[in-house]
Simulated scan of single mutants.
Amino acid sequence: MKKIKTIYTIGALAILAGIAIAADHLEAPKVRMAATSDITDLYAFEGSNADNTVFVVSVQSSLAAGNNASFDEDVMIEINIDNDGDLVEDLVLQAVPRGDRMYFFGPAAPSTTGLISSVVDSSARNAVRISGTGDEFTATDDRGIQYFAGLRDDPFFFDFTQFNQVVQGPSVAPNGFNDPGNNDFLDTNVLSVIVEVPNALLGGTFAHPAGTGTQVFNVWAESKRKQ
């Protein structure tokens, strides 16, 4: 089976209760050269009921509205779950595009951990038609996992233009950020993979390291390019 090598990752987020979010838009020039594998956001939050967790991974920032952009067939999106707090993935959820469908694998234990991945047991494969502008294709498998893949409005709000002024110092932006600011990501899209998973399929949890008494697991996302 072909190996897939990491290009970009975003960091671990401890979750179980509440909402976990990481965002990373408008990369440095060398990263933008591989824009089809650039992760913009990771979200993890309670699902349609308290027994489910939703994972959202978005790629390809600042897509023009109305543009039916496509997932890169050489890029796998991988959601990693760490159940014991050692920051090594115990389970993975993988999404691989082929034609007009996104194929999902897992959650399952990976054969290897870290930068190199192979597609996990194909018996856990499910698929959903990729949604474009105006489409809303979803799928649910016999385990109760729900799937979506396609264009979504970019939820990120940031005044990037003013930020560039602020970082140049008070002589350029004496008043700092504007109130209200301008959302430079308004009317732009991202490509999102969304999976809602029953918690019973996500393995165990561990005590929050801050001693809050909350049980959590870690989650992070990677995009990995086929080699």
Results as ranks from 00 to 15, higher is better:
Y8R: 05
A14Y: 01
H208S: 12
T205L: 11
M102Y: 13
A22W: 08
I77P: 01
G181K: 04
I116G: 02
S118H: 11
K30P: 11
Y147P: 04
L151M: 10
K5V: 12
E196L: 03
R225P: 00
G213H: 02
L26Y: 15
S117D: 09
G106E: 08
A64L: 13
E222N: 05
G211L: 03
N67D: 13
G132T: 10
L202I: 11
T53K: 06
P180T: 07
T188G: 08
V75P: 01
D154N: 14
G66N: 04
E73A: 13
Q94D: 01
F105T: 06
S62A: 12
S61D: 15
E136Q: 09
A44K: 04
P174E: 06
P107Y: 03
V92H: 00
S111F: 11
A95H: 05
L63I: 15
P107D: 10
F157R: 11
R225V: 10
S223L: 01
V56N: 03
F163H: 15
G144D: 08
W220I: 01
L93W: 06
S131M: 09
G211A: 04
D142P: 02
D74T: 14
F163M: 14
A20D: 02
E27H: 09
R101V: 05
Q94F: 02
N175R: 09
N199M: 03
D154H: 01
A50Q: 09
Q215P: 08
G213K: 03
L115T: 15
G18L: 03
A173M: 11
I145T: 13
F185M: 07
S118K: 15
M33H: 10
A22Y: 07
A127R: 00
A210N: 10
M33R: 15
A28M: 03
I116N: 07
Q227Y: 01
K224H: 05
T161I: 11
A139K: 04
T212E: 12
E78A: 12
G106Q: 11
S37H: 06
T161D: 13
E78C: 08
A221M: 05
F156H: 12
D41W: 00
N199W: 00
K224E: 07
Q227K: 04
L26E: 14
E46S: 12
D184W: 05
F148E: 05
R152T: 12
Q146H: 10
A108D: 14
E46Q: 14
R225F: 06
T40G: 09
V195E: 02
L191M: 14
M102T: 10
A35S: 09
P174M: 09
T188Q: 13
T112Q: 13
I15E: 03
D179I: 06
S192N: 09
G85K: 00
V31Q: 11
G150M: 11
F45R: 08
G150F: 10
I81A: 03
N175E: 07
T214W: 00
V172Y: 01
A149C: 09
S117P: 00
W220K: 04
A35T: 06
N164R: 13
A34W: 11
V57W: 04
V197Y: 00
S171E: 15
W220S: 07
G144S: 07
F55Y: 13
V172S: 12
F71P: 01
I81C: 02
P110T: 14
L63Q: 15
A127K: 04
N175I: 04
I7V: 07
V219D: 00
A108I: 05
F217W: 06
D121A: 10
P180V: 06
G204V: 02
P97A: 08
Y103R: 15
